[in-house]
Amino acid sequence: MTPLEFFLAGTMSAATVFLLAALGELVAEKSGMLNLGVEGMMAISAAVGFVVTYQTGSHLIGFIVAGAAGIGISMIFAIVSITFLANQVATGLAVGILGLGLSALIGKNYESFTVTAPASIQIPVLSDIPLVGPVLFQQNIVVYLTIVMAILISFCLNKTRLGLAIRACGENPKAAESLSYSVFKIRYGAVAFGGLMAGFAGAYASTIYTPLWADGMIAGRGWIAVALVVFGTWKTGRIFLGAYLFGMVSLGELVVQSFGLAVPSQLLTAMPFIVTIVVLAIISSDRARLRLHAPYSLGETYDGSEPQ
């Protein structure tokens, strides 16, 4: 592979981590649930996914169990913020702290262990095309499935009754309930879906993208995923583009090294965070557009009464 092919192929793989988590968060937020525990959900699933893959040798089982772990921890968030009506921001932070702690505990005896990443798919003929082939047609199956997921989620949210119900809960839960949708069930379901996707994102990060366990390996990627939903103004297509942009930024280190530039590595590590801040400020400054696209009741606790 040429350096350029390597960089572009790496971008797709790095972007998949962001995209998986951001898609899950999108669905949760569309239903009105602002779950800030993504970082913690990813961390715990990364640990669980790694340990299970290491023990069983099967990435599939690793992914399934990691997804279940993601759902499990997202249910703590759901119970406290939906059933017990607690503030969503604070609950998300609490679940995040809990998830980070649990991930350290689960991965305690596996520090610096590695698993082998599964072989990538070689699509016949297409993968032999120069440049395009190695970048687009020699990826891991999860990369393709994630793209399929993005399309399905976009379709579901915009074209189906279920999507309409989810959006209604996020815009005006009281109205959704008067249309005999159960806000309770839909929000629980949306949060669980967010947990599942964060779980997959964590497992992808620890068993495929960098197949090794290190405490704190998620390193802020969950938070970037939360930011991506805002960048994408709650639209699947834009979130998709944003995830690929951030996949590219997070590989900046490789580019700089290959050009032999003397830039402190700390600056490059900080780059995705600096870019997030700048992009967030640019996108958010258009207040009208943000208000137009953000779910109207996002982050608001719903106790069945009229909104105050």
Partner: peptide, 24 residues
Amino acid sequence: PISSVHIFQGLLLVSYLASFTLVN
């Protein structure tokens, strides 16, 4: 393990937020 303190803190905040519901 060191992470126990973090887990304890996380549980504390989660339980606090859930219990606080009873105030209102």
